[in-house]
């Protein structure tokens, strides 16, 4: 079972897209790949106020990662805590994973020619910190949740 998940409190989210930049800055990504995505539906008037809600999406860290199954070099693995990570040493940048992922999550980092995707900022998690997007969310709308078996 996945140990972690990122949760967006839509009441607090102001659609500022900062999380997308926090992520890129942390991973030192160039123009091109954006690993998480803030989106919203068209506005609808609710009791006189035009409203919409924002959604946050990154990699789903699937139970059975399609991206990993197809990878010819076994570069993608699922860790014990559920995080699906890519091993840069093994990745050859063929991007088969992007085609296999139902949501097209994996992207090519043009600087390294390797695949890059959200890994909950695994180096930070291992250091006892939270992912970049969560740590620096402008209004503290994003939460890094640790699931517990009850």
């Amino acid at each position: 079972m996945n140990k972690y998940m990122i949760y967006l409190n839509t009441i607090r989210c102001i659609g500022c897209h900062a999380c997308e930049v926090h992520c890129k800055a942390n991973k030192n990504l160039p123009f091109g790949p954006i690993l998480c995505e803030i989106d919203h539906k068209p506005l609808k008037s609710i009791r006189g106020v035009p409203k919409t809600e924002f959604s946050f999406r990154s990699c789903y860290q699937c139970e059975d990662p399609y991206c990993g199954d197809i990878c010819p070099t076994d570069a993608i693995t699922k860790r014990e805590d559920g995080i699906v990570v890519v091993d840069d040493e093994k990745c050859i940048g063929c991007m088969a994973c992007a085609g296999a992922c139902p949501w097209g999550i994996p992207q090519l980092n043009p600087l390294t020619n390797k695949m890059v995707k959200c890994d909950y900022c695994v180096d930070r998690v291992d250091a006892g910190l939270k992912p970049a997007c969560v740590t620096k969310c402008t209004t503290h709308a994003l939460k890094f949740v640790t699931m517990e078996v009850v």
């Binding site: 500022c16 930049v21 890129k24 800055a25 942390n26 740590t135 620096k136 402008t138 209004t139």
Partner: peptide, 23 residues
């Protein structure tokens, strides 16, 4: 390598522009 809102005052929060400083 990293910029965040001062943890003592903003608990890490920063806007998109703030993170784009190194760029």
């Amino acid at each position: 390598t990293w910029i965040e809102g001062n943890p003592h005052l903003l608990d890490g929060a920063l806007c998109a522009k703030g993170s784009a400083g190194p760029a």
